[in-house]
């Protein structure tokens, strides 16, 4: 009972504060082109953040790379973020022509899978491998998804919040 009440009150609180997020320049542009985009506002540095559904990620990415108004040609980084309930794959882009940055967030589904951006920006190769290695997000379509920083026989993905290191081989680690 109490749990139900709590969840109800949480939902009520959410209803009281509807997220008022103005769509940014690129979010608006994407919305005009009928892409499903969730606006997340600006980060502290003034970089626009958008959330894209996994199934439309590749088309959005292609648009962002090829459209004259965006031209995000340089991939800065891919980071996995563990939000405890779900995991995010965060892509940071930079445009050499307009010197603007953009942040795309993709939520990993229950199988921890996210489409790989290899066809759009080949530079994600090592970044996606690293995110897979440390966060356990599986990039579907990546040609060579294996561990890069940790040893190949490592158990678990260390950057997850619920990671516990209990490999019996690592006796030297316990003194």
């Amino acid at each position: 009972m109490s749990e139900e009440k709590q969840s109800e009150s949480k939902e009520a609180a959410k209803d009281d504060l509807p997220p008022v997020i103005e769509p940014g320049v690129y979010g608006e542009l994407l919305e005009k082109k009928k892409f499903k985009v969730q606006h997340l506002g600006m980060d502290a540095m003034g970089v626009e953040m958008i959330e894209v559904a996994a199934e439309s990620l590749l088309r959005v990415a292609e648009y962002l790379r090829d459209n004259k108004k965006c031209q995000f040609d340089l991939l800065v980084s891919v980071s996995g973020v563990d939000m405890v309930d779900y995991r995010l794959s965060v892509v940071h882009l930079y445009s050499l022509s307009s010197n603007e940055s953009l942040c795309i967030k993709v939520r990993a589904d229950e199988k921890e899978a996210v489409p790989s951006l290899m066809p759009i920006w080949p530079a994600v190769d090592w970044h996606e491998r690293e995110t897979y290695d440390l966060m356990g997000i599986i990039y579907e379509g990546h040609p060579d998804l294996r561990r890069i920083l940790m040893p190949t026989d490592w158990i678990g993905h260390p950057l997850r919040k619920d990671y516990v290191e209990n490999d019996p081989r690592l006796v030297w680690n316990r003194r």
């Binding site: 980060d43 502290a44 540095m45 970089v47 800065v76 980084s77």
Partner: peptide, 12 residues
Amino acid sequence: SFKPPVGECMSL
């Protein structure tokens, strides 16, 4: 005891 507010930031 420095605590930044909730948020995120990519500084380059």
